[in-house]
């Protein structure tokens, strides 16, 4: 759990982060969204004390983050940044081993952990471990960057625009990977992004920042349905709202009784994808099946359109 209490950061007369309080529940992802200069990165960097706050406290699992020397604190927190920041003179395996090495793990345990992480990120340890970062594709570099951040099994992972430098296709894949990894390890993640779509997709909760202030901190559905200010509304994008709302739900939750002709849609697909499929094929309804291929019923345009309407 991360408790941010009345945190403020001032540079000379300029207030970059202004009295922000928020709590991130354990094992959840919080996405901090805002335009550039909104103070979102500064807020993130105060958690691992790359930036020291002017006032306020931050507690990690109930412990003030100033109770340790800054470098020891940072070793216990995962940190992944845009452009991955891999060390060009070290191999992939050495890069991932950075924090375990700083913590003084023994060789065997480090090797084991590196192999485990590489496999988890679908990189063959024998092939990729000895490579240098410049021998990897952008998507692979990014995966190694996240693997490195997770190497010492941190409870908390901070990510600063981790997918910012990736092209859209690799980006989607990287987001899916992150969700799977988060489920696997139960890591608490705070992710900074300027992309509302990414925030809605990844965040259990979304924190919207503007001019150093926390404007709204709520579940994605609430941010979409009840934006706290016109700024949030703009950020959400009024023309995108219904579709973003649909993207939060799974087809399984929109199944109706009955049957339909055509290619079945899997129950774990997003409702947005289902609507897109329906509109594209020109059919009023399509069958739904679960992961085992068992028919569950059907999903209809009418049903989905109702779900896309602003919640009461």
């Amino acid at each position: 759990m991360i408790e941010i209490e009345n945190i403020t950061k001032r540079y000379d007369k300029q207030t970059v982060v202004n009295d922000v309080s928020m709590v991130v529940e354990p094992r959840t992802i919080a996405a901090i969204v805002g335009t550039s200069g909104s103070g979102k990165t500064t807020l993130l960097r105060m958690i691992n004390r790359l930036v020291e706050p002017t006032s306020g406290t931050i507690k990690l699992d109930g412990v003030d983050n100033h109770s340790l020397p800054d470098y020891e604190l940072r070793r216990s927190i995962g940190y992944a940044i845009q452009g991955h920041g891999l060390f060009p003179h070290r191999t992939v395996a050495q890069n991932i081993a950075t924090v375990p090495l700083l913590l003084g793990w023994d060789r065997e345990r480090i090797d084991e952990r590196v192999d485990e992480l590489l496999k988890l990120f679908q990189l063959d340890p024998a092939d990729f471990g000895p490579r240098y970062p410049h021998e990897l594709s952008g998507g692979q570099q990014q995966r190694v960057g996240v693997a490195r951040a997770l190497a010492a099994k941190p409870n908390v992972l901070l990510m600063d625009e981790p997918f910012g430098a990736l092209d859209p296709i690799i980006r989607t894949k990287a987001q899916e990977d992150l969700l799977a990894i988060q489920k696997h390890f139960g890591t608490t993640i705070i992710l900074v992004t300027h992309d509302m779509e990414e925030a809605v997709h990844l965040g259990h909760k979304i924190a919207v920042m503007d001019g150093g202030k926390l404007v709204q901190y709520a579940r994605p559905a609430e941010i979409l349905a009840k934006p706290a200010s016109s700024f949030v509304e703009t950020l959400v994008g009024s023309s995108e709202r219904p579709f973003r709302l649909l993207s939060l739900g799974r087809v399984g939750d929109a199944v109706e009784k009955g049957s339909a002709e055509g290619e079945a849609i899997p129950a774990d697909a997003s409702q947005r994808d289902a609507l897109a499929e329906l509109l594209w094929t020109g059919k009023p309804a399509l069958p739904v099946k679960d992961t085992d291929g068992k028919a569950l019923g059907r999903v209809t345009v009418d049903g989905l359109v109702k779900l896309a309407a602003r919640p009461a």
């Binding site: 691992n48 790359l50 470098y71 020891e72 604190l73 940072r74 070793r75 216990s76 940190y79 940044i81 845009q82 452009g83 991955h84 920041g85 891999l86 060390f87 060009p88 003179h89 950075t98 924090v99 700083l102 960057g145 490195r148 951040a149 901070l158």
Partner: peptide, 23 residues
């Protein structure tokens, strides 16, 4: 020295000396 590598080194908990000698 790539800025991101330096930033990552700091963020992962290298001391100033470790960052200088290691990165």
């Amino acid at each position: 020295v790539p800025k991101a590598a330096n930033e990552a080194a700091r963020g992962m908990g290298m001391t100033d000396w470790q960052r200088l000698s290691g990165v």
